[in-house]
Structure formats: structure tokens, C-alpha cells
């Protein structure tokens, strides 16, 4: 018997489900917007007065202009926590097994999860931009540079979503899926996000310059403020491509492994699922 498979229909069904979940999970969307905005307020108003001299040489007019790109990238990292948590909730609840016993296009489960998370993160980024404009952020970028920034952010967001999906699928509990990736959220701070890396001690400076978020931040800053980009754009795209691919391969392998080998749930699992 040949059963017809509906890839597009199933993906759009799953996407609608995931978007509904995101709209109802006010805490998650609040955190994805709230975390970068909190850091924005902290750095602009608390530390900004002291830090603004350090960025004069970076030829940016106001400190908020300098920090915003790093906090926009931080939004993508916060989105990674969102998808990791959502994926883990699905995997640890009974619903994933229900989907697996249905004659559906299975990749739709993962594809829709990535797409819904990316949409959520991009909406959050727009919200952070709006708040930043209200606080005095200004950009002299024209349409082309804004489009470039949008493209970069879309790529960053989707790659980090793929990585977050893998974290969530691989996590044993929802708590570890949501807490585990937290260091990634503060990683932009230990890079070129808050102060120029040239002000850091040698060892740290090396890390800050070569960690994946710095080239993304430098590229975004260049597009928004006209600061020099150099090869940062290429390094950023390579990081995104690499991390995204890693996340995708890892996700699919974990998803398929659980598919075939998940045994009888032990007492711990029963307690968690019943509670």
C-alpha cells in the first residue's frame, strides 16, 4: 500500500501549531525581548556614562549606537533558548510519540519548529530596535545597508535556531534544555559587543576577537553605523553556515535515534511526565 505524503500541508499545520504556542507562551516571548532590553538599559544608563569614552575611538557618536548591534545578536541567542525549551517540551511530553504514530511528513516537525522560532526571534529583534530608537539610537544606513542587516540577522537567527533545536532534542529534561544554553546569551558581552576588544587583556582579547558572535556584531555594526567591516562579514557567514549545519545534522541524528531506540520509560521519566 502506498500512502500519500503531504510535505507542504503537514509543515504548514505544524507551523500554525507552533506559532499558536509561541503567542500563548507570554513568558518566553517576554524573555526573548526582555533580556536584550534589560542589558540595553543597563549598559546605556548604568555603565554607559563610564564606558562611552572607551568607544570614542570606534568613531560612533553615542554609546547606545555602539552597544545595540551586540544586543541584537544577543536577541538571537535568547531565541535559541526559546526553541531549545520548546523542542524539549515536545520531546518529553507524549505528543511527539503521537506524531510519530501518524502517517505524516516527519521532517515537518523540525522544519516548522525552526521556522516558527526564527519568526519569533525576528519579531523580537524588531521590538528591540523599536525600543532602542525610542531611547535615542540612530542609524545613517540607507535601504541597501538595512536590507543587508536584515539578511544577516535572518541567517544568524535561523542558524542559531538549528543549534537550539539540537540542544532541545538532546536534552534529558526541559530544565536542562532551557538553562543549558544560557551562557550563549551572555557570550556577546565577552566579545566586541559592549567595549572594543582592543581594551581587553591579551588572552581574553584573543578569545573575544575570534568567538563566533564578534564577527556577526562587527558586520551588523558596520552595516548600521558605517564602521569598517573588513572580512568580518565572510567570517560571520561562515560561522552561521557551520553552526547551522552542525545543529541540523545533530538534530536529525538525535531525532531519528530516539525514534528507534527509546526504551521503556524508567520511574524518573514516569514521574516527570505524570507531574
Amino acid at each position: 500500500m502506498t500512502v500519500k505524503v503531504y510535505p507542504l500541508r503537514d509543515t504548514s499545520t505544524m507551523l500554525r501549531r507552533n506559532i499558536k504556542q509561541e503567542l500563548r507562551d507570554k513568558v518566553a516571548i517576554g524573555a526573548i525581548i526582555g533580556i536584550p532590553v534589560l542589558f540595553l538599559l543597563l549598559f546605556v544608563y548604568v555603565f554607559g556614562g563610564a564606558l562611552k569614552d572607551s568607544v570614542r575611538s570606534a568613531s560612533t557618536p553615542a554609546y547606545i549606537d555602539y552597544v545595540l548591534p551586540g544586543l541584537i545578536i544577543m536577541t538571537a541567542a535568547a531565541g535559541l533558548i526559546g526553541i531549545s525549551t520548546q523542542a524539549s517540551v515536545d520531546m518529553t511530553a507524549g505528543i511527539i510519540d503521537r506524531f510519530r504514530t501518524m502517517a505524516i511528513f516527519r521532517p515537518s516537525i523540525l522544519i516548522a519548529r525552526i521556522a516558527a522560532s526564527a519568526l519569533q526571534t525576528l519579531v523580537a529583534m524588531v521590538a528591540v530596535f523599536v525600543i532602542a530608537f525610542a531611547l535615542g539610537f540612530r542609524s545613517d544606513a540607507g535601504l541597501m545597508r538595512w536590507l543587508g542587516a536584515a539578511g544577516l540577522l535572518a541567517f544568524v537567527t535561523v542558524s542559531l535556531a538549528c543549534l537550539g533545536l539540537a540542544f532541545g532534542l538532546a536534552a534529558k529534561t526541559v530544565a536542562s534544555a532551557s538553562n543549558g544554553p544560557f551562557p550563549l546569551v551572555v557570550l556577546p558581552l565577552v566579545g566586541s559587543g559592549i567595549v572594543p576588544t582592543s581594551t581587553m587583556p591579551a588572552g581574553l582579547r584573543y578569545f573575544a576577537e575570534y568567538q563566533p558572535f564578534s564577527p556577526m556584531i562587527n558586520t551588523l555594526r558596520g552595516l548600521l553605523l558605517g564602521t569598517p567591516i573588513g572580512w568580518s562579514w565572510l567570517i560571520a557567514l561562515a560561522w552561521c553556515g557551520g553552526l547551522g549545519l552542525l545543529g541540523l545534522i545533530w538534530s536529525v541524528s538525535v531525532f531519528n535515534r530516539r525514534d528507534r531506540q527509546r526504551g521503556t520509560p524508567g520511574p524518573g521519566f514516569s514521574a516527570a511526565a505524570a507531574g
Binding site: M1, V3, R17, A93, G94, I95, R98, T101, A103
Partner: peptide
């Protein structure tokens, strides 16, 4: 899968 339905021990609801 096209002919079965499964209700497990734990609620498989969204």
C-alpha cells in the same frame, strides 16, 4: 501509521 491510533499512558495532547 495510516490505519492506527495510539493513546499512551501519558497524555499526548498539546
Amino acid at each position: 501509521r495510516s490505519v492506527i491510533g495510539v493513546t499512551g499512558q501519558f497524555s499526548a495532547i498539546d
